[in-house]
Design a protein around this nucleic acid. Sequence first.
DNA 1: ATGAAAGCGCTAACAA
DNA 2: TTGTTAGCGCTTTCAT
Lengths: 341, 341
Amino acid sequence: MVTIADVARHAGVAASTVSYVLSGKRTISTDTRERVQRSVRALGYRPNASARALASQRSNVLALVIPLRTGMHVPVMMQFAAAVVTTARRYDHDVLLLTADEGSDGLERVAQSSLVDALVVMDIELHDERVPVLRELPMPSVLIGYPDDADGLTCIDLDFVAAGAHCVDHLADLGHRSLALLGTPSAVYERQTGFAQRTLTGFAEAAERRGVLGVETPCEHTFDAILHTVRQLLDEHPDITGLVVQNEPIIGPLLDVLRRLGRRVPDDMSLVAICADDVAERQVPQLSSVSIPAERIGAQAVEALITKLEGGEVPALTLQPPSLTARESSCPAPHRDLTTA
Amino acid sequence: MVTIADVARHAGVAASTVSYVLSGKRTISTDTRERVQRSVRALGYRPNASARALASQRSNVLALVIPLRTGMHVPVMMQFAAAVVTTARRYDHDVLLLTADEGSDGLERVAQSSLVDALVVMDIELHDERVPVLRELPMPSVLIGYPDDADGLTCIDLDFVAAGAHCVDHLADLGHRSLALLGTPSAVYERQTGFAQRTLTGFAEAAERRGVLGVETPCEHTFDAILHTVRQLLDEHPDITGLVVQNEPIIGPLLDVLRRLGRRVPDDMSLVAICADDVAERQVPQLSSVSIPAERIGAQAVEALITKLEGGEVPALTLQPPSLTARESSCPAPHRDLTTA
DNA sequence: ATGAAAGCGCTAACAA
DNA sequence: TTGTTAGCGCTTTCAT
């Protein structure tokens, strides 16, 4: 292994000079700088990460805590993770991957051992045991999602309340009077997961505001569950003509189920999904959808952390405004048959 | 921050004694050990990771390199990643997440800076630029997948050749005489990705051996592409009655496409997929499938690394034997209509 | 503009 | 069974 001392010897300077050339924290004469840089290249020198971390009290590693639980939509999480890693690298940081099942102990472990400088925590529940821990940790963190009590924390998320409302408004604008929200599996609600809960809130509030019927139901992932859920929904509320879907894996089978139940999309039933754009575009018909800007949020989370690490200020809560793209799955409500009214 | 010196003082022993109590590398009298352990708890001591790594030349961190490219099936990758993290934790290691787009430079960076002790690299291509780099790196690595020239490397993978053959045998045993392999997007083949390539080999060899027709075609992910690919396939080979599918995201739409084209599964067309069990079970009808044991392979990769780190020997190539589960999507071939023969 | 030297917090060889 | 001590390779203060 080639050390800083080797480089210093090779360049005929002191080790500290090499360090300063590399960090740029001191002005170095062009001559010396170039000589050192040549030596670095000649010897293939790479600073030892542990030594650097020990001396500088900075590991240049961020922790990323991802959920590995049932009901989470995996591709979206991967987009987050990818964005976090890519952005971290842009700021010369690496990413340590933690799974949520280590719980708050895991957070304390990596933080208190100085393995990482800061943390990104995904999939925050409304009452999350990790939140008080994060608050006490001696280093910055950013939550993707936000808990009920977000005091003293930095949170970034899609504005799911607005997303739910947005879907209702879109359908209500098209003349639909009876809507349903087909949500995530019930386990997700029972965990009091923020995004699911808040979409529901936005949906309900908007339905009330617009004076339309707004029914809500969770939905599991199996085909039979989807069939059963939708059938029951339409039995109880036969006049529903607008569906909001927040449950990416059921989208394909759902279209099939609606076909079997004799509802054409969009003629008999308009659909708006909350999902990644590529998923929406891949369906037949293509789905009107509110997209989940995972890349944007992941990048923003890292940027907020870097800012905090440099002593800067960041907003306590950043909510991405949702944007709805109308595609083929939503259209004006069918005329009401007044004879059956 | 509480250091080992604080603990030593609190317990009335030398710092090295604390170190030895923690590592267990020396026999310590019960009395001292308990006193030290009490002090550790009392002060909430956590060894500093960088200091430990610097002194011991071991970071206790493994690198995991995951692909973020088109055509890869994301949920399977997440299963790998989850298994790697979970298993690493069982051996007291953490996992640093790298994306494949850092290329071989990324590997050199984390290895030569001693950021990690060892590497797990996923999605290995047949001719992979990272392979020669891994071979020269001063630390152990395990490849998930394997390149053409795997000399001096440790590789773990599902035996995709056998998987392809297995599917053919299953269908041939049921009397099918004309089969097709519906593969991954062509980009995956063009990258010379091992698993896709080898499945194809196994498929072709087995078809030849069994004396049945074996047609192969890549397939993109969009609905239109699936429709077009399958239609063309059945136009050119109308007597195909067995389909092998290695392309998880198209499975749902494919069933739809077959229905549209008037082929009932399994009555007119038997289907065998190479995919995760839960995906196979979620379909209607449930798919006969060769499962991808991601958890097993991920865990095995980490265990191999740990063994190597401890100076042990591991096999150069570990191929998981595929296992096929027959479900509802495959059945005996329809009787041939001899009048049209 | 550069160098010397004191740590950062831990491990492990050496001593006792 | 335990303590003393010399690093691990770097950053950063202090000195020049």
